[in-house]
């Protein structure tokens, strides 16, 4: 998402592209606002680069917990009627959505 570098060597974020991935629709002034905010965030996180991390393994989780597993046992889920209460529309027991076009 950081895909260009300007003449001062500062990485520019393509806010419109990122917004599009998240299905967010921004007008021009919003793009400007987020441009500044997101670049601020990136700059902030970049401070970590000032440290020597050559001996540190990448961390995927904050806590050292492993193997939280369950046995393969079935238990009933939600009642169908209750589930469909959340459906915007229903058709033949299914969630009806706008036609999917590929």
């Amino acid at each position: 998402m950081v895909d260009e570098v300007d003449q001062d060597g500062i990485e520019r974020i393509d806010v419109r592209y990122v917004a599009n991935l998240a299905r967010l629709y921004l007008d021009d002034s919003e793009v400007d606002t987020f441009q500044g905010q997101m670049e601020g965030i990136v700059e902030y996180v970049k401070q970590i680069g000032e440290l020597d991390l050559s001996e540190i393994e990448p961390t995927s989780h904050a806590r050292p917990i492993q193997n939280i597993l369950r046995e393969d046992v079935v238990s009933p889920g939600l009642d169908h009627e209750l589930v469909m209460d959340n459906a915007p529309r229903e058709k033949d027991g299914q969630f009806a959505v706008p036609q999917i076009i590929e």
Binding site: K91, D92, G93, Q94, F95, V97, Q99, I100
Partner: peptide, 13 residues
């Protein structure tokens, strides 16, 4: 799983 109806699609989870 998606099912396709006339004018809409269905989702079965």
């Amino acid at each position: 799983k998606n099912m396709h109806f006339r004018g809409s699609s269905g989702v079965d989870f």
